[in-house]
C-alpha cells in the first residue's frame, strides 16, 4: 500500500518535469502528467516491482470546457482550453490505487497511447477518440467505436457539440 504522496514522489524523481503536480482533493487525488510521456510513465508503473499497477480500471476522456466560450445561436463554441484523460490504476497485488491525469490542448489533442501497456485501454481509448476526438498516438487501431464509422459531425461528448441536420439523408433532430 502506497499513498498518493509517496507515489508522486517516486514518479517525480524518476520522470521529474514530465510529472507535473499532485492535485489534492478530499476524494481521489490525482497526479497530472505530460500527455506525450504517459505511455512511459504507465510502463514504469506497470513493470516496477514495488508498484505493479497491473489493472487499468478505467480510462475516461473529459472535455474540461475551460476555454473561451462564445455562444453562437444558442450553442457555445469553445476555443482554447484543454481536453483531459483520466487513468484510474490499481495494483491487484499491493491493492494500491492511483489516478493520473493528462491535459492536452483542445485544438490539437494528442496523447500517447497506453493500449500496448494495458490492453484494456484499447477500447477505452477508441471510445475517448470517438466521443471527444482525442488522438492517441501509436494506438494499434484507432477507429470510431460507438458512433457510426462515417459520422462526420464531430465528437459528441465535447461541450460545444451540435447535432447535424441530416445524416445520410435522415433528419437527425426529431
Amino acid at each position: 500500500m502506497k499513498s498518493e504522496e509517496e507515489l508522486f514522489n517516486i514518479l517525480k524523481t524518476k520522470f521529474n518535469e514530465n510529472v507535473i503536480k499532485l492535485v489534492k482533493q478530499p476524494i481521489d487525488p490525482f497526479i497530472i502528467c505530460d500527455p506525450l510521456m504517459i505511455n512511459e510513465i504507465s510502463l514504469y508503473l506497470l513493470s516496477n516491482e514495488e508498484l505493479l499497477f497491473d489493472n487499468l480500471m478505467n480510462l475516461s476522456g473529459v472535455d474540461d470546457a475551460n476555454g473561451k466560450s462564445t455562444p453562437i445561436e444558442g450553442i457555445a463554441t469553445i476555443e482554447g482550453g484543454t481536453l483531459s484523460v483520466y487513468y484510474h490504476l490499481e495494483s491487484t497485488k499491493f491493492r494500491h490505487k492511483v489516478v493520473l491525469k493528462v491535459c492536452t490542448p483542445r485544438e490539437k489533442p494528442e496523447v500517447a497511447s497506453v493500449a500496448l501497456v494495458w490492453r484494456s485501454a484499447d477500447w477505452h481509448e477508441r471510445e475517448a477518440y470517438d466521443l471527444l476526438g482525442i488522438k492517441f498516438l501509436n494506438h494499434p487501431d484507432l477507429r470510431r467505436i460507438l458512433m457510426p464509422y462515417d459520422w462526420e459531425a464531430g465528437y459528441p461528448l465535447r461541450k460545444d457539440y451540435a447535432n447535424p441536420e441530416f445524416y445520410h439523408g435522415m433528419k437527425v433532430p426529431y
Binding site: Q25, P26, I27, D28, F30, M57, N58, Y86, H88, V99
Partner: peptide, 9 residues
C-alpha cells in the same frame, strides 16, 4: 455535490 471527481466501482 462539491467540486471534485470520484471513481467508485
Amino acid at each position: 455535490p462539491p467540486v471534485g471527481s470520484v471513481y467508485k466501482r
